[in-house]
């Protein structure tokens, strides 16, 4: 058994202190194996983004600790790929330039990554838009470009914070499929924050159901469905059963 990719041990996050204190997350524990696709599923404001930022080392745990690749996270982790709710495309660079920004900020030689950039751009079907600026793209195209930006330095751990949250249903479905095939190909460890039950079941090896504030990982559900999970898989009885099981839990919280 290889070491855990991510090990969350009784992590909590409390913002401010005293009477003003807001208990945002935890305590919760979870061990994620390399190559897993984990969804953090919960209602808005439940602290799932907080947990993601703590894994990334962009927020400190108030108590408990998180281990990433065998080391306790104490500072921003540069070995991973993060995609934020609002994409981090800058308006003064083209699609290609934005992807290369990840490389340049890391001080890596751009020339070595040219092929990777090209491959990523064609994987997400943006070949004709590589030299366009973000404002010339639709929301879905922007997210695809941001996704390339997240992947270009070939991280083996990906943290994705509701990357599809602001897209329409059709675009979501199509990007989800791309995301799944990319994952199946390279098998990175993925932590995927979402509030879509369907999305979580379709993409994940395990779904972590997070309770409303303060967020806790209430239940971890193994999703035992064959890959790739296409439209047919989503119509299967088993898929519906998982959805019903999760809906039941949220219904219990009074969220649904």
């Amino acid at each position: 058994m290889t070491a855990a990719a991510i090990d969350i041990r009784s992590a909590t996050k409390t913002y401010a202190s005293g009477t003003e204190a807001v208990h945002a997350f935890g305590p919760s524990s979870l061990t994620i194996a390399p190559g897993e696709f984990i969804s953090l599923l919960g209602p808005s404001g439940c602290g799932k983004s907080t947990l993601m930022l703590m894994i990334a080392g962009l927020l400190d745990c108030t108590s408990g600790e998180i281990e990433l690749g065998g080391h306790v996270v104490k500072e921003p982790q540069t070995s991973i790929g993060i995609m934020f709710q609002d994409n981090t495309l800058v308006p003064w660079r083209t699609v290609r330039g934005n992807i290369e920004l990840q490389i340049e900020l890391r001080g890596l030689p751009s020339a070595d990554y040219r092929a990777t950039v090209d491959r990523l751009i064609s994987t997400v079907k943006l070949d004709d838009f590589a030299d366009r600026y973000p404002y010339e793209l639709s929301g879905g195209m922007q997210q695809r470009a941001a996704f390339c930006q997240t992947l270009v330095h070939r991280p083996d751990v990906l943290l994705l914070d509701e990357p599809l949250g602001k897209l329409d249903a059709m675009t979501r479905e199509s990007i989800r499929r791309d995301l799944q095939s990319l994952w199946l190909e390279d098998r990175p460890t993925v932590v995927f924050v979402t509030h879509s039950i369907e999305e979580a079941i379709q993409l994940s090896t395990r779904v972590c159901v997070i309770s409303p504030r303060p967020g806790r990982i209430e239940k971890v559900i193994d999703i035992d469905l064959p890959w790739p999970r296409d439209l047919a898989a989503k119509r299967s009885e088993k898929f519906s059963a998982y959805a019903a099981e999760i809906e039941e839990i949220f219904h219990g919280y009074g969220v649904l």
Binding site: L53, A56, L58, P76, Q77, T78, I80, I82, F84, Q85, D86, N87, T88, V90, W92, L101, Q102, E104, L105, R106, G107
Partner: peptide, 27 residues
């Protein structure tokens, strides 16, 4: 500078100079 870009910079481990010329200044 918006919060997500600030986090993005931190997550790349970019030096302050590099972050300044590549992101903060143009922004």
């Amino acid at each position: 500078l918006n919060e997500e870009l600030t986090r993005f910079i931190r997550a790349t481990g970019a030096s302050p100079w590099r972050a300044f010329f590549k992101v903060r200044l143009p922004a």
